[in-house]
């Protein structure tokens, strides 16, 4: 995707800047942008290391497993086809817990494993089942409890209160998650 978008951005803006004579601004923005990227990365570095370390602790305790159990009634509601299959239910809820805790690196492999297990039960191998559909759409929601990356970005931009956005993010996430589930039901009927 970026292989197409990136050159379009560059070609479009560079040629426009040359035509409109906006070259001084463009030149300084090129250098500013590279140092902005470095500054942001340095700021992200601290938060990402801290958060990954904390989540590694969560991963090695029974904390994750306990949360997984809490989630199982919701999974049964969302993916009724999987009611009988305990293993798939567990894989789905582990993926969701990893997402909630912001363990992006752990969430994706767990999610792919769940997809493979669901594919085994799939009668039509080239088409998504209802459960797979719900599962993928939920994974496109950012159900992270602490939006660490945004907090780090806000901090690096000199915000007076970087964590101020946590509550608004929760509300937006919950509304989007409900919209996700409902849009599946509505579009399915159409």
């Amino acid at each position: 995707m970026l292989n197409k978008i990136w050159p379009i951005f560059i070609i479009l803006s560079f040629s426009y800047a040359i035509c409109s004579g906006n070259l001084e601004k463009l030149n300084s923005s090129i250098f500013d942008s590279t140092s902005d990227a470095i500054n942001l990365s340095i700021n992200l570095l601290g938060t990402m290391c801290l958060w990954n370390g904390i989540m590694q602790i969560a991963n090695e305790t029974s904390f994750v497993e306990k949360l997984t159990k809490l989630l199982s009634p919701i999974i049964k509601l969302l993916c009724p086809e999987m009611k009988k299959n305990k293993q798939i239910q567990k894989e789905i809820s582990m993926n969701m817990i990893a997402n909630i805790l912001g363990l992006g690196n752990a969430a994706t492999p767990l999610g792919l494993k769940a997809m493979k297990s669901m594919q085994k039960e799939n009668p039509k191998k080239d088409t998504l089942t209802d459960s797979m559909l719900v599962f993928i759409v939920l994974n496109t929601a950012s159900i992270q409890i602490i939006p660490t990356t945004v907090i780090a970005i806000r901090h690096s931009m000199g915000s007076t209160n970087p964590t101020q956005i946590v509550f608004p993010v929760w509300i937006a996430t919950i509304c989007a998650a409900i919209a996700r589930y409902n849009s599946i039901q509505v579009i399915d009927k159409i």
């Binding site: 951005f9 560059i10 803006s13 560079f14 800047a17 923005s29 590279t34």
Partner: peptide
């Protein structure tokens, strides 16, 4: 760089 250019141009 690409987004900075979009903005500054």
């Amino acid at each position: 760089v690409a987004i900075g250019a979009l903005r500054s141009s």
